[in-house]
Design a protein around this nucleic acid. Structure first.
Lengths: 341, 341
DNA sequence: CTGTTAGCGCTTTCAG
DNA sequence: CTGAAAGCGCTAACAG
């Protein structure tokens, strides 16, 4: 049956095979496992592939092989700055592989999370990356016997099972607060946006350190259920300052909040760093503010990079590490806080 | 042949069909075009689908229907802030559809752009969104007879063919500069990062307006081949000020540059708004700086939203608009520039 | 409105 | 090292 397909110009494996006079499976192999095809034949095939402009049909490949070559990434806030840094790591690592990424935003909604996860899991993904799961409970059953490698980016305090990278946000936060206390601040406020697992851990760390020092006071906290932003930082500092007139420092759940707090402090006539500001995440701008922002450096790029790296290694059959990978954190002292006395 | 598949637990269309005693195509139809299946049967099917936890295999669907349900988005700088706003619009619009997005980063590299575009085009995409193509020439042949709807987000000055949304960056830029001149600034500098098509148009607008006013001077421009960032804004303002001591204003190619310029101006002891700063893009923080940032508002969210909207309509067989959609711009006067005299 | 038939393009067996 | 046969799970096209 020569030339079965006249209507479409898609070049198929069969077309290439026929052109050379081999069978399609050989062409397939020359493309996927070059070493098992004899040198001369391989070269001839690859040349012909080039010449005819053949490109594999990934749908057909996925159907036949049950492996789509797509890594699904589930994030609670895909278009947040925090995720942006992770995404840079992801894209950087995935670039040299032949896998592709498909992102899905769960919008911090457990149901959406579950839905998206099911969707991914049922589509022969090469792997799945779960970033900061909102409600692990709801998705737990789906992950108990996954059909592909799964890596999580999480708060290590949660003792994740399976492959995971992350940091301990509770420790990071507590360490930051202890640092602020050692700088002489006493009425240290906390401002934050929508509360997810990580921000709750951070709050725990804050509360713990404040209690240790006998400085805890529920009035010192201000939250708003919204994405963190410069705008929100302004609002929350304003609110907190009204609530606690002798406030002398704010610990912000994110650097953009801290930037807002910095601007608002100027407007309120507060003298930084006598009034201290500490951020979280060390975003790109933080070192270049005036004064530069003291913050907790969290290796977000590495989180993305390492997570995909783990996934790719697992896809290639490597033995995964047995324990979660702790990427650590660092308090970066800059101009918005006083020097330690 | 009952129970052909014992090894895998994947529930197939056939499984559902057999369970009810209809043919698989009917189940398929009940799922995709509910209205053409009789009410009682449809309900029975949907119920059984739910009960058995059936989820369609998108690879099989894509292979059979030549329609993957995936929209490919090609962006020159996927993880930039500028793209982030577009991405928000994209995700917002796509959420209510049953399509998914797959992003690819071309890294401003024409070859990579071409490679990625080919990859997408050969995978039965539902549609393709091209954002700020770097080298249209190189990809032009691939787009001349596309197998799916294609929408571009571009500078309208380029007179794109096919569906497109965008603004005229040249006009926006020239308008901004004329505004700055009308505020009394004379030695207006221009700073920018990596030059792409849009930034070149913006420079044209700048140059044109400066020439009209007899103020042009090549010394007034500073570029660096890097992503725009707060850091870069600091560096470039420093460089420019050294180069042009009587500089009295900077027009920044992006708000993050402008934010850097604002901080650097403080460090250099320049008095804003006697020293004027104007940004571009009206990013989220711009209204909340101290002083708040004068900028050119470009509707990036809308660009993403409208682009995907066009694509989805086209996928659904709607007649596309004949002309590119101009989303317009607006000069937003805020505290970093003097009032018009 | 529902069913039958025939693949989509590729890869997995299992043979040579 | 290469090939033949047999689908992967779904849908288009045409009947009934």
């Amino acid at each position: 049956m020569p030339n079965r397909r006249a209507r479409t110009e898609r070049v198929t494996l069969q077309d290439v095979a026929t052109a050379i006079g081999v069978s399609s499976i050989t062409v397939s192999r020359a493309l996927r496992e070059p070493e098992i095809v004899s040198q001369p034949l391989r070269e001839k095939i690859l040349q012909q592939v080039e010449k005819m402009g053949y490109v594999p049909d990934l749908a057909a490949r996925a159907l036949a092989s049950r492996h789509s070559g797509v890594i699904g990434v589930l994030a609670p806030a895909l278009t947040s700055h925090a995720h942006l840094s992770i995404m840079r790591g992801i894209e950087d690592r995935v670039r040299e592989s032949n896998l592709r990424i498909q992102y899905a935003d769960t919008r911090q909604d457990p149901e959406e999370e579950r839905r998206q996860l099911r969707l991914f899991l049922s589509q022969h993904p090469a792997g799945i990356l779960l970033s900061g799961l909102h409600h692990l409970d709801g998705t737990h059953d789906l992950l108990s016997r996954p059909s592909c490698p799964v890596v999580q980016i999480v708060d290590l305090h949660m003792m994740p099972t399976g492959m995971a990278v992350g940091i301990n946000h509770r420790d990071a936060s507590a360490t930051a607060i202890r640092h602020l206390i050692s700088c002489g601040y006493r009425r240290i406020g906390l401002i934050g946006g929508t509360r997810d697992i990580r921000s709750e851990r951070r709050q725990e760390g804050y509360s713990q350190a404040m209690q240790e020092a006998g400085l805890a006071d529920p009035l010192l906290m201000a939250w708003e259920d919204a994405f963190t932003s410069v705008q929100l930082g302004c609002q929350l500092l304003q609110r907190l300052k009204a609530q606690v007139p002798d406030l002398d420092c704010v610990f912000c759940q994110n650097d953009d909040l801290a930037l807002g707090a910095l601007f608002e402090a100027q407007r309120l006539g507060l003298q930084v760093p006598d009034f201290g500001i500490c951020g979280y995440n060390d975003l790109g701008f933080s070192a270049y503010c005036e004064p530069a922002l003291t913050t907790v450096q969290v290796p977000r790029f590495e989180m993305g990079y390492r997570a995909i790296d783990l996934l790719i290694r697992a896809v290639n059959g490597e033995q995964p590490p047995t324990a979660p990978i702790d990427l650590g954190f660092e308090i970066v002292e800059r101009g918005t806080t006083r020097r330690r006395s």
